[in-house]
Computed example of a mutant assay.
Amino acid sequence: MRYDLTDLSLFRHIVEAGSITHGAQRANLALAAASARVRNMEQSVGTPLLERSRHGVTPTQAGRTLLQHARSILEQAERLREDLGVYAGGHAGQVRVLSNTNSLTEFLPEALGSFLVAHPNVSVDIEERLSDEIVGLIAEGVGDIGIVAGTVDAGSLRTFPFRSDRFVLVVAKGHDLAGRKRISFAETLDYNFVGIDRASAIQRFLSKKANSVGRPLRLRVQLRSFDAVCRMVENNVGVGVVPLTTARWAAKTMGIHAVELTDPWAVRNLTICVRDYKGLPYFARQLVDHLREERTEIT
């Protein structure tokens, strides 16, 4: 039974993506080459590693065992590369970060920018997910660092405070709700919404909140950024939910008004979570320390 690091990395990508096609793309391999590698791995072990269906693939029990060892081996290989990088004239490494939408759009760009300037040989792979998904994936070793809403149960993960913000409703000046100071999310569901792309974590979160009170979220248009949401709101296309930091910045140049959401989930204390701080690769520990250095509280 012989698996090289490319095999193990490919298998990890396939399981995490839930698809051989998407896993091959993540591993930068042609689909035919990826499929051949999977077949060879299954022939080598003598049993299927993946259960295939029209909805994608999931690991068999043998596949889950391989995945567990693959993650451990790949993590050790990454640490070896980082340690030997010192003798090659400098460090080199990659940090895998899973983040919810709020952190990804409002806080991480600036924090990661300063970190990457200080560490030019480090790369950061960022993936957007829902907070509860992130906790499970970090526990499984899918990523090094997670940024989640503080309301999520992190279980046995080690956590550190990151940032604080709140979601607010933004409406055009002159809108029916522009005179309100506070409102519940349920009350806003009578109006058309401008939202973020359906695949985004925050849009899925808001849809779930609407469904929980038996109401649909009436989305008229979906965009790629909170800034674009504010511009559509300014033009009376609908109302939107954005971070307070975005609303304050946008209100300086746009005709919008922010209304406080009274729902407890609107206040977002963002948290860093890791499986084992001491067990993190060197640069991942440095990134955690960097993210913790400055905290921004809502006022």
Rank of each mutant, 00 (worst) to 15 (best):
2 R>H: 15
183 I>M: 11
141 G>D: 03
282 Y>I: 11
8 L>P: 00
109 P>V: 04
168 V>E: 03
14 I>L: 07
184 S>K: 09
23 G>C: 00
276 D>M: 02
120 P>C: 04
76 Q>W: 08
28 N>Q: 15
9 S>T: 13
173 K>L: 14
157 L>W: 04
66 L>F: 07
249 W>R: 13
103 S>Y: 01
172 A>F: 10
215 R>G: 04
131 S>C: 03
34 A>D: 11
225 S>C: 10
48 P>I: 13
232 M>D: 13
147 I>F: 00
43 Q>Y: 13
244 L>E: 12
208 K>M: 12
36 A>I: 15
158 R>P: 00
198 R>N: 10
24 A>M: 09
49 L>Q: 01
102 N>Q: 11
114 S>Q: 06
191 Y>N: 10
20 I>K: 11
24 A>C: 06
228 A>F: 05
185 F>A: 02
192 N>G: 10
126 I>Q: 00
11 F>M: 04
240 G>C: 08
225 S>A: 09
90 G>F: 08
220 R>H: 12
232 M>Q: 15
211 N>F: 11
93 G>A: 14
254 M>Q: 14
145 I>M: 01
205 F>K: 09
161 P>E: 01
82 E>R: 05
218 R>K: 15
259 V>D: 00
34 A>K: 12
19 S>R: 08
99 S>Q: 03
196 I>P: 00
1 M>D: 13
238 G>Q: 10
272 I>L: 02
170 V>M: 04
2 R>S: 15
170 V>Q: 08
25 Q>M: 13
184 S>L: 09
35 S>C: 07
230 C>Y: 05
230 C>G: 01
209 K>M: 12
34 A>N: 09
5 L>D: 15
134 I>H: 02
186 A>I: 10
134 I>K: 03
273 C>D: 01
273 C>A: 05
18 G>S: 06
84 L>E: 15
226 F>E: 10
164 S>L: 07
231 R>E: 15
19 S>C: 08
64 R>P: 01
276 D>H: 06
297 E>Y: 14
170 V>E: 03
163 R>G: 00
96 R>D: 08
166 R>P: 03
225 S>T: 15
168 V>W: 06
